[in-house]
Design a protein around this nucleic acid. Structure first.
Length: 1182
RNA sequence: GCAGAAGUGGUGGAAUUGGUAGACACGCUGGACUUAAAAUCCAGUGGGCAGUAAUGCUCGUGCGGGUUCAAGUCCCGCCUUCUGUACCA
């Protein structure tokens, strides 16, 4: 009674482990700590499939190994139990998501328990458990109560910001905050009302409520974060996503962009994963440049003409006159010009520039200021001057200041002072002329190559700057691109489109007018949504310029740009660029930035692609925000009143008014008097309205949104350290002891979602002193996905083909009874299948089916098509068939079959398949050998009577019917076999299809292992205490060495091979010595813990094997006295030669040359050279 | 397009610093046991050529070059597949 009864053994030990709490971790210990974590699962309705355990088995092996190595191991497990599927299911069935979630968790737990994981279940967490989400709400509150100080580069309490504001206003504070924050002084601040203060603080908080453009998914009825969108559609469900402005909670993750990047150097994560985080954060270094938008003029239309503000009718005359006047300036004019030219005052002035019908002396277009120096003539023309001033002001909106020659000549300083004052007093943005367009560029060195600018169609300035003439075209374009979904835009990358706005911007250095275009190749969401286009240096700009015939100035030394843009920074030498000529990319960039800074028109800037994360979801099954609204301002509920529990709702859908499902809750108002949730009816008569009149009753509406799926998973690894603590998130002692996760296992699909958010929250919590570490995970490993092998059956589609009066051919599928054909019978193509055999079959089918189906019904169906011959109704049965001849065609449809109906030879279990779905009950099958199987001719199962399916590797999914559950494997082969087999499949990080093809090999290995410890037909336990043979000790120690190395390198597949080799060798050696077999049990226990425990017990131990010390490798057992040298000739191995290891190379060479096989190979030739690598190889070069 | 990973028998995959290519397993073939099957055990198994045979020769790690006494491994240039990402200015 001692055979390897794995079912009994496994059940026995699983029970004992649970009862004795074998794997419970203590928060204090003399041993060093080690924290091994799996990404906790979402408990889906489909149950656990064989892909889930892959990572869990690997981490369990590591956790068990670490226990053997003397570590205090924390290895917890829990459930990420808030989420969409449970809610979707609830919408469909009305079942409370809590109920289905609990049922699913129960099933998961049962499945997990059967695999023998060493989880400490006493620490289980569930994100949907109020005792857990209390702390998620708490973290949210802490984020709300914090701001990001860029000076100290850390998050600080918002109370400290309030103190700063009251002392020095917000001018000196450098914080991560909203862009539209207005400057204010300490006095301003102290004068603000409480609401105004709250409004301002909201712009600084790390989680803030703001009107933002979000990704709205109408089908899911909720917003989605960027990482929840894949290829422009929702990750879940694949529904379209549109951009929409909504008031939402956001997380200021952008404040941490640089630290999230820098932290990657400190952690041991896979490079591809680090790369995708780096790309997601998307740091790029360059400059932000401000371009002034030039004011439009009636004569606008082309470059230079734009600047002419003069009257179009007399422009030619004016220009000629202006030119003349410039040649003969008065002394005063000359003197003043020296001060005004080259933007010395910060603004560009032009002299003798025509405005309307006049030629004023100096004009600043940007500020619409005219400076006149009166010559002698004007002394007597005061009235005329006044008229002129008035005309300029009224007709053109120019202000005029006037100086006398004397003033300029004698007190230039005073004159300049007055001009400067006037300039500063004039609003910079008056009219359309004062706008600036800010762009971000990584190539400020190419600024002289700018020949146009492009704005995203959504850019704020588009409507403002577009000229009357271009208005219709621009508006049409903006509307068209708004309609195009994200997906369309992406599918259509190659098409160049855009429209000229009619407006121009001024080049910061040359002053040239640059046309401003809009184009959807510029994305509103990146940078500023505007670019300075340098067609010679950027391919997209180049293509755009070519397409619209815009100039492509070349600013690169010795580069041909007639075919394409030149984007190679390394080999750049700038030319035709004024003060940048001859410089390299790096030099020119620096110089350009300096020049821009001097002009106040730009600065060096680092730009990030990363956006703030939207944190609101219009969903039921998520964490409620601990937020109520007073006078429209969000207020936090204090920790002592948490958790704020999810309310009950009548349905899990949005309300008719479009509010989230929580809008349906009847008891969902916050009573600040009692600090309890109360009925909505208690809200004042304006009920539900966030605005509250004075003298209210202290009852306020609660937030209706819930938190996103990643909220609960962003800090859960720390809650495991002290999961039942009711006072704090986790005690300081526990946090200090466990620090962070030493080894984290999970899929790479979380690279830019969970793994970025969790790093963000950890850094935040660390800043605020809630956590002692600033990275959650030291080492991370991505296990590869286990793919499913889907099975497909071929359904024969019988079409009816007819010719109508107008000659077109019409096909209609013949819907009588499903017919399936075996895989290799007919080719799957888009063409119809030509087959006499099938034709006969189809007629036969009709003949046999028609008596069963009411004949009239069949006729009715044909008339439904109504494309057949007109007198069809009058046909009798025989005539009908006669009519159908030649009108029948065949095609094949491929559909998924459940993989459980298919065996390893790809043969379908027909009866199981027929019972699968009611519509297949009477299905007909054409077998591989051509036999037809239907209800009349029962399946015989004779030679060749098989129905084959085709197979293809796909992601495991319920909808593809290719999910394989681990339960059956455990039942049939045992958990130990499953564990070893999953590891044996291949390298952990590699994706691989699931196939049970090789599982018997692993299973028989375990049986062989068992037999090593047993003897005789009855397999009774039998070991000797005799010393083991030298060979057996060698086997043991080489196994210890290899297995230890493999576990530490996470190369679990190779250690399974090592075990097989060891058992094969020990079996051959007939080893049954305790000296070898006792350590062997420990070696194998991380992989196959049940059999190891059973053997350990039989070896006479009362304690669990789980903490038995790992065997110590001893080199001495592997020391050899001789080596079988491979002897190569010109690198090709020819034979082997056994030689003592203590020979010198010269002795080896001598021995080899003396060997007769060597001489045989050489056939009398003398070798040129003999390479001897002692202990390795001998190579004879001939 | 960009970034990363990979390409080895019929299959999954070994080969850790350049040193016996194909470990270990599946599958297949043959044999033993059995009335039979399952299970178990034994032997063989990269291709080609020669030989009754032992055996020998030869070609072989996506393709083409190179470095080296020696290359699956290092270098250069291609091809293919997978994964991630994308008008990122």
């Amino acid at each position: 009674m001692s055979k390897y009864h794995f079912n009994d053994i496994e059940a026995k030990w699983q029970k004992i482990w649970a009862e004795r709490q074998t794997f419970k971790a203590e928060n204090q210990s003399d041993k060093p700590k080690y924290y091994v974590l799996d990404m906790f699962p979402y408990p889906s309705g489909a149950g656990l499939h064989v892909g889930h355990p892959l990572g869990y088995i690997a981490s369990d092996i590591y956790a068990r190994y670490k226990r053997h190595k003397g570590f205090n191991v924390l290895h917890p497990q829990g459930y990420d139990s808030f989420g969409l599927p449970a809610e979707q299911y609830a919408i469909q069935t009305g079942q409370h998501p809590k109920k289905t979630t609990e049922e699913n968790i129960a099933r998961y737990r049962e499945q997990l328990d059967k695999i023998g994981f060493s989880f400490d279940w006493s620490r289980e967490v569930r994100t949907s458990d109020p005792d857990y989400y209390k702390w998620t709400q708490w973290i949210f509150i802490q984020l709300f109560k914090s701001w990001y100080d860029k000076n100290e580069d850390k998050a600080r309490p918002i109370s400290e910001l309030e103190i700063l504001f009251s002392k020095e206003g917000n001018q000196k504070v450098i914080a991560a905050c909203d862009d539209d924050t207005e400057p204010f002084s300490a006095e301003d601040w102290n004068g603000f009302t409480s609401e105004e203060k709250q409004q301002i603080l909201l712009k600084y908080r790390l989680t803030y409520l703001a009107e933002t453009e979000v990704n709205w998914c109408p089908q899911l009825g909720t917003v989605l974060a960027n990482d929840e969108i894949v290829n422009g559609v929702s990750e879940r469900g694949g529904y379209p996503v549109v951009r929409k402005k909504m008031k939402q909670w956001s997380m200021r993750i952008t404040a941490y962009a640089q630290r999230l990047l820098d932290g990657l150097d400190k952690i041991d994560w896979p490079q591809p994963l680090k790369d995708s985080q780096t790309n997601w954060i998307g740091r790029s270094k360059g400059a932000s440049v401000k371009f002034k938008v030039l004011p439009p003029t009636p004569s606008s239309g082309g470059g230079a003409g734009y600047r002419l503000t003069g009257d179009p009718q007399s422009i030619k005359l004016l220009l000629r006159k202006a030119k003349e006047m410039r040649k003969s300036p008065t002394l005063a004019e000359k003197k003043l010009w020296q001060e005004l030219r080259t933007s010395k005052l910060g603004y560009k002035f032009r002299r003798q520039h025509p405005v309307y019908k006049f030629i004023p002396d100096f004009v600043c277009l940007e500020k619409r200021l005219i400076v006149e120096v009166d010559g002698k003539i004007h002394d007597f023309q005061v009235e005329e001057d006044e008229l002129r001033t008035l005309t300029l002001k009224e007709k053109k909106g120019f202000n005029v200041i006037r100086f006398t020659n004397k003033e300029v000549e004698e007190n230039l300083e005073k004159v300049i002072h007055r001009i400067t004052e006037t300039l500063n007093s004039l609003p910079s943005g008056e009219g359309q002329g004062g706008d600036t367009i800010e762009v971000f560029t990584t190539r400020p060195d190419t600024i002289f190559g700018v020949s146009f600018m492009t704005l995203a169609p959504e850019h704020d300035l588009v409507s403002k700057i577009t000229t009357e003439a271009q208005k219709a075209e621009v508006e049409a374009y903006v509307e068209a691109s708004a309609k195009r979904s994200e997906r369309e835009r992406m599918a259509d990358v190659k098409t160049i489109s855009g429209v000229f706005t009619g407006a121009y911007a001024e080049h910061p250095f040359t002053g040239e007018a640059i046309p401003i275009w809009i184009g959807d190749y510029v994305l509103a969401g990146y940078g500023t949504g505007a670019v300075m286009a340098v067609p010679c240096g950027d391919q997209r700009d180049y293509d755009f310029a070519k397409h619209f015939n815009i100039a492509i100035p070349n600013i690169f030394e010795g580069i041909d740009i007639s075919e394409e843009a030149f984007a190679d920074k390394e080999n750049t030498i700038i030319a035709h660029s004024d003060f940048l000529n001859g410089l390299s990319y790096a030099e020119a960039t620096q110089k350009a930035i300096e020049a821009l800074e001097a002009k106040g028109q730009g600065k060096g800037k680092i730009n990030y692609r990363l956006r703030d994360a939207v944190f609101s979801r219009q969903r039921y099954w998520g964490e409620p925000f601990p937020v109520y609204y007073k006078n429209g301002m969000p207020q936090m509920i204090a920790l002592e009143h948490l958790p704020l529990r999810l309310p009950e709702v009548s349905a899990y859908l949005p309300t008719e008014e479009g509010e989230p499902p929580l809008g349906r809750a009847e008891v969902w108002a916050w009573d600040t008097n009692t600090n309890k949730v109360v009925s909505n009816k208690l809200l004042s008569p304006t009920g539900g309205d966030a605005q509250r009149a004075e003298g209210d009753n202290g009852i306020y509406p609660l937030e209706l949104n819930t938190m996103p799926g990643w909220a609960g998973s962003s800090c859960y690894m720390f809650r495991y350290m002290d999961p039942t603590n009711d006072e704090v998130f986790a005690s300081k002692e526990a946090l200090d002891y466990w620090e962070n996760v030493d080894l984290y296992l999970g899929g790479s699909e979380h690279a830019t979602g969970h793994l970025l958010y969790t790093r963000f929250w950890t850094k935040f919590m660390n800043d605020r002193g809630f956590l002692p570490v600033d990275e959650p995970v030291k080492k991370l490993i991505n296990q590869g996905m286990i793919l499913g092998e889907s099975a497909f059956v071929y359904r024969l589609i019988i079409y009816l083909m007819d010719t109508t009066d107008n000659g077109s051919i019409v096909y209609e599928p013949f819907r009588i009874v499903p017919v399936f054909v075996s895989k290799n019978k007919y080719p799957v193509t888009n063409e119809f299948i030509e087959s006499k055999e099938l034709e006969d079959f189809a007629f036969n089918l009709l003949q046999t089916q028609v008596p069963q189906l009411p004949f009239l019904k069949l006729k009715e169906w044909f008339t439904d098509i109504s494309l057949l011959s007109k007198n069809f109704k009058s046909l009798n049965k025989e005539e009908l068939f006669e009519y159908l001849k030649g009108k029948i065609r065949f095609g094949i449809n491929v559909l998924h079959s459940d993989v459980s109906f298919v065996n390893t030879s790809n043969e379908l279990d027909i009866s199981a398949f027929k019972n699968w779905r009611p519509e297949f009950k009477d299905a007909i099958f054409i077998l591989e050998n051509g036999k037809v199987y239907d209800s009349n001719s029962p399946f015989e199962g004779g030679e060749g009577d098989v129905f084959k399916v085709s197979r293809e590797v796909e992601k495991m999914s319920k909808s593809k019917y290719n999910v394989v559950n681990p339960d059956d494997i455990c039942e049939q082969y045992g958990a130990d076999t499953l564990r070893m087999y999953e590891m044996f499949l291949g390298p952990l990080e590699q994706a691989k299809p699931w196939s049970t093809a090789g599982i018997t090999g692993v299973h028989s290995f375990l049986k062989k292992l068992w037999k090593l410890y047993h003897t005789g037909a009855e397999e009774s336990f039998h070991l000797t205490n005799e010393p083991a043979s030298k060979d057996s000790l060698k086997t043991l120690h080489k196994t210890i060495k290899k297995v230890q190395e493999d576990i530490e390198n996470f190369s679990f597949n190779t250690s399974v091979s090592t075990f097989m080799i060891a058992v094969n060798e020990l079996t051959a050696q007939k080893c049954n010595s305790r000296e070898v077999l006792e350590p062997l049990a420990v070696l194998i226990s991380p992989y196959a813990p049940h059999i190891a425990e059973e053997l350990w017990e039989k070896l006479g131990h009362n304690e669990s094997i789980s903490t038995a010390p790992f065997p110590i490798f001893d080199e001495k057992h592997l020391v050899e006295s001789s080596k079988e040298y491979p002897v190569s000739f010109n690198g090709k191995m020819r034979f082997k030669l056994e030689l003592p290891l203590d020979l010198t190379p010269a002795q080896i060479e001598e021995a080899v040359m003396a060997y007769d096989k060597t001489q045989e190979q050489l056939q009398g030739r003398t070798p040129k050279k003999v390479i001897v690598v002692p202990g390795k190889i001998i190579n004879i070069v001939g």
